[in-house]
Design a protein around this nucleic acid. Sequence first.
RNA 1: UGGCCCAUGGUGUAAUGGUAACACAGCAGUUUUUGGUACUGUUUUUCAGGGUUCGAGUCCUUGUGGGCCAACCA
Length: 558
Amino acid sequence: MSTEKTSGPNDSLNFLEEIVEDDLRTGRVEHILTRFPPEPNGYLHIGHAKSIVVNFGLAQKYGGKTNLRFDDTNPSTEEQEYVDGILNDIRWLGYNPANVFFASDYFDQIYEWAKHLVGEGKAYVDFSTPEEIAVLKGTPTEPGKDSPYRNTSPEENLDLLERMRTGEFPDGHCVLRAKVDMTSPNMLLRDPIMYRIKHAHHHRTGDKWCIYPMYDWAHGQSDSIEGITHSICTLEFAPHRALYDWFIEQLSIYPSHQYEFSRFNLTYTVMSKRKLLQLVREGHVNGWDDPRMPTLAGMRRRGFLPESLREFATRIGVTKRENLIELSLLEFHIREGLNKIALRRFAVLDPLKVVIENYPEGQMEWLETENNPEDPETGKRALPFTRELFIEQDDFMENPPPKYFRLFPGGMVRLKSAFIIRCDRVEKDADGKPNTVYCSYVPESRSGQDTSGLKVQGVIHWLSAEHAKQAEVRLYDRLFQLENPGVEDDFKKSLNPTSLQVISHAMVEPALMEVTSGEKFQFTRLGYFCVDPDSTPGNPVFNRTVTLKDAWAKAQKK
RNA sequence: UGGCCCAUGGUGUAAUGGUAACACAGCAGUUUUUGGUACUGUUUUUCAGGGUUCGAGUCCUUGUGGGCCAACCA
């Protein structure tokens, strides 16, 4: 048998890594410096997580650094709350920016550069209305026409710009535009706006400015000031690159370069900030950190591990293609991470009482069970076993289908880490729902010292009724029922009505009464759960992060 | 009807002119006191036509299909 098998994605580079290696080899750059440039107008989501992993990951791999730069050029939508949240999310994901900067740190320099361009006749103040500007801009297939203000002298423009800055004009009265090419096939080159007037309070510069630079007139300049070698963004910015380069060339400043990769889409998820904001505002979810949200805050509260997210982001790759990633890939990485570290605990979400009729009343014994079979060093714990127990309703069926190997009348099942029991009879409510199952146990079948010789296929979890404690459990499911809700006219039409199911009286083992917010467990046979911050002493709340894979449930669906 | 970007299994990503592979998903099985985990096997792939070449997923060309661009948003 050959053991030489060394192909796979691990030894191949994505296109950004190829560019970087090339730049390093040819000496275009000595060290790479990337940046992650969020606008502080919302919370980070899983799409940003990929961008963070790409930017920080690339720098880490090649011994470079990454700055965090808040793109705060629009005071009307940006807030300090978001700055704090974003910083927190990035650190949680496992990254530390080399520097934390703000585009607003550079407003003075950017203004000086604007004056320079005006002085050279490469920018002008335009008093046209937004409508007039739009009409003269043309369309993608028709060239635009020059604005009547395009040939104002540099001297007059300099004066006008200064008056814009000092607050002489009201909002929207005029704009500063770059003089590029009104006939360019690239719409962004048709005399793009550099500054607009906004008499608004800025979260950092206060009331110092009433003109604010547009994205194109701030981003590349900020990159250049910081000496960013590789300015990585998503595909929709590709047409901006021509402008990015144009400004840098006109100013003869450090030539940062822009590279674009495709953003990713996730099935059953929307990712646009606008839509996420709508979900929050309209109360379809309980805030930005609702565990159903694809925000980092939501996923953290849901119980996702940052390393799972990093691995997922790496696995989906970096390309320029449209793509729609299956949610099951994310879930795979979540389970993989949690399987190794989550301690196992017993919980019964939908209790059904079991009475072991041949087990003496009042008797109790401690039975040992492992905390995590994947990690023996986590040791064992003891569970109290008594005559009256709880099992899941799901684990009993009066008339089971073929291959059902849990409990049914006349059938036997193993209580995990305890005994084998046989179901003798069942007592039902008036509506026919089983309410108590009477069983007998096999004393010599005790786990670890089973001499019964019996073989049973099913193993189920259980709780001593007398010792079990109540807890709230929140079961989360996908927020949308459609694979690609974002492409519908109304994405909210496919909202999943059962994306949250609250079980206020689940039963759990006593040890789960003393937990801390954020702690993660596997509830044996049910899934991974995480302690919600809503928990109070004695009243824990558990969020279901993700279910376990369930071959039986899958087979039943067919 | 202008410009830019893109096209490899169900999904995503490799293969850098020389045997189309990896992961997830699916299916089948082994192990298992979690119908979990682990392990094994397996179904399924180069958008179409033309060209260059001994040889094309890869290069050229023409189509076709998809995405992006006409905020004083980023």
